[in-house]
Design a protein around this nucleic acid. Structure first.
Length: 512
RNA sequence: GGCCCCGUAGCGCAAUGGUAGCGCAGUUGACUUUUAAUCAAUUGGUUGCAGGUUCGAGCCCUGCCGGGGUCACCA
């Protein structure tokens, strides 16, 4: 045995001493077996159902419940406690006459604490104050808590609202010790239960719409499908550098060549970039591709699953996000990028068809811009500066500049735009979709264009993927493609301000 | 990465450059229908780390570590 690095503080030392006292009585502080018959909520429900039939008979209902102690109130020879499991809380009513005195004394002498896991067996009753409780006949310690959780007292008002006294709000501690955050903050636990429901609703929708869920490589020899810097790693035996994927796009579209009509993947992307309230280094992405549809039909699919996801965790499509009233009732607004920017800034970028003159026009309008950016990037910057923040209601910005969209098919009779939209809600970018480019000759030209742009100073390289071109040469059906950051969708639908609040373990620096 | 804010007891927070306090939790005692239980007493600190200024630093200065915000970056 190596020496423990743990330095118990005073409170922990007290609890260690209690464990020693418990064990001195021959009691296992961490026993192997439990015998739960009811969750806390199920016990209460069973009693209330029985009580509605026959109040006397309901008192005969025997249950064994388990949970973490959240409140203890020792009143001499009578004690109360609340225990909590995932389903909720139930009160234990412990009286020395109803149980072995030695067992009762574990409670009276405070050898069991708040935060311990316990099992209680007894019959159900209602206290004088009207709360359904377990009249405890036997009481077993299931697991001793050696480190006290942050203390939060809760008062349940008559109208059912809960007032909390004492808080655990230190953001860093909550993220680093998410287990403590979850154990103490019920609303945090709720967010992640909602997250699961949202993801499940999305899956259901796509499954029912005929999509096949697939899995493609996370470690990729050539990254692509998005404009972002990748993480690089190395395979030792093969002596091969690999990239953690920044998107699934190129692998998914190869599957359309292979004969699937519609595929999707829900998984993790990794981008070696800064973090913010809406960016985490790794995040959950949804991408889907469906043959024989264009970007208009993709937009309808997007509306469809977002509606389902919303209703999975909200009573209606009218939601509130950080003070913004958002209505997700489809159809959502569609506006071209050109019109949106012209309406917001007065600049019609089609009057400036090269980067140099457009950059000058943007400056003239009093908008700061980094010098030397390509034409499409300037337009994107303009959108971000003048339009994005005001797009509170869901809005599809349609038809993006061709030179920043290497995988989208161009608009008919228009060499400057492609059939691409991005979805904005609550001032945030949510999704990106195109009518996918399926002409291998055009695709190769786009790769070469992107390489040229990169050499001219753009930060994000789009590497030439020759295997992707080889696949496309076999023939790729016309198709519509789509990507959305699921974390942001969860933020929106659960009214969370930061992406870190919808990730169980957000990325943090190493603990000093 | 730039700028701004923050870091004090287990948790939440105070403290003009002059003895580091309060609430909750904890500990001891009382209490057989409490529910933020109550009452009485009481323990608990290398003020994130390292330097500096000063007779004296939680407070002022410098650097570092960590977190948040914002800008940049980022489909």
């Amino acid at each position: 045995m190596t020496a423990s690095a743990w330095q118990p503080n005073k409170l922990e030392a007290e609890r260690l001493d209690k464990v020693a006292q418990i064990e001195a009585q021959g009691i296992d502080a961490f026993p192997r077996r439990v015998q739960r018959t009811h969750t806390c909520a199920a016990a209460i429900a069973a009693f209330e159902a029985a009580e509605a039939q026959d109040a006397e008979a309901a008192q005969q209902l025997a249950v064994t419940v388990c949970g973490r102690i959240r409140r203890v109130n020792v009143k001499g020879k009578l004690s109360f406690m609340h225990i909590e499991d995932e389903s909720g809380r139930i009160q234990l009513f412990l009286r020395v006459n109803d149980m072995a005195e030695a067992t009762y004394n574990l409670v009276k002498d405070k050898l069991v604490d708040s935060d311990d896991f316990v099992q209680a067996t007894g019959t159900l009753m209602r206290t004088k104050a009207g709360e359904v409780s377990v009249l405890v006949k036997d009481f077993v310690l299931l697991a001793k808590s050696l480190s006290p959780l942050p203390v939060i007292k809760q008062q349940v008002k008559d109208d059912g609202t809960v007032v909390e006294y004492g808080e655990f709000t230190d953001v860093e501690a909550r993220y680093r010790q998410r287990y403590a955050d979850l154990a103490v903050n019920r609303d945090v636990r709720d967010v992640f239960m909602k997250r699961a429901k949202i993801i499940k609703a999305v899956r259901n929708y796509l499954d029912n719409a005929g999509f096949l869920e697939v899995e493609t490589p996370v470690l990729q020899p050539i990254y692509g499908g998005a404009a972002a810097r990748p993480f690089i790693t190395h395979h030792n035996q093969l002596d091969q550098d690999l990239y953690l994927r920044i998107s699934f796009e190129l692998y998914l579209k190869r599957l359309l060549v292979g004969g699937y009509d519609a595929v999707y993947e829900l998984g993790r992307d990794f981008r070696n970039e800064g973090v913010s309230f809406k960016h985490n280094t790794e995040f959950t992405m949804l991408e889907f591709y469906k043959a024989y549809i264009d970007y208009h039909e993709v937009a309808r699919l997007c509306e469809g699953y977002v509606v389902d996801a919303c209703l999975a965790v909200n009573p209606s499509l009218q939601i509130n996000w950080q003070g913004h009233a958002v209505d997700l009732t489809p159809p959502w607004k569609r506006i071209t990028m050109r019109d949106a920017i012209r309406d917001a800034s007065g600049i019609d970028y089609m009057d400036y068809r090269d980067a140099k003159s457009l950059e000058a026009a943007i400056r003239k309008a009093g908008i700061e811009v980094a010098p030397g950016q390509p034409w499409g990037k300037l337009i994107e910057h303009l959108l971000g500066e003048t339009v994005e923040k005001n797009l509170i209601q869901p809005t599809f910005i349609m038809d993006y500049p061709r030179d920043i969209s290497p995988f989208a098919k161009k608009v008919e009779y228009d060499d400057l735009h492609v059939e691409r939209w991005e979805l904005y809600i609550a001032g945030m970018e949510f999704a990106n979709a195109f009518t996918e480019l399926n002409d291998p000759r055009d695709q190769e030209a786009r790769f070469l264009d992107m390489a040229k742009t990169f050499r001219e100073g753009d930060d994000d390289e789009t590497p030439l993927d020759t295997d992707y071109l080889r696949a496309m040469r076999y023939g790729m059906p016309p198709n519509g493609g789509f990507g959305m950051g699921m974390d942001r969708l969860v933020m929106l639908l659960t009214n969370q301000r930061s992406i870190r609040d919808v990730l169980l373990y957000p990325h943090l620096r190493a603990e000093g």
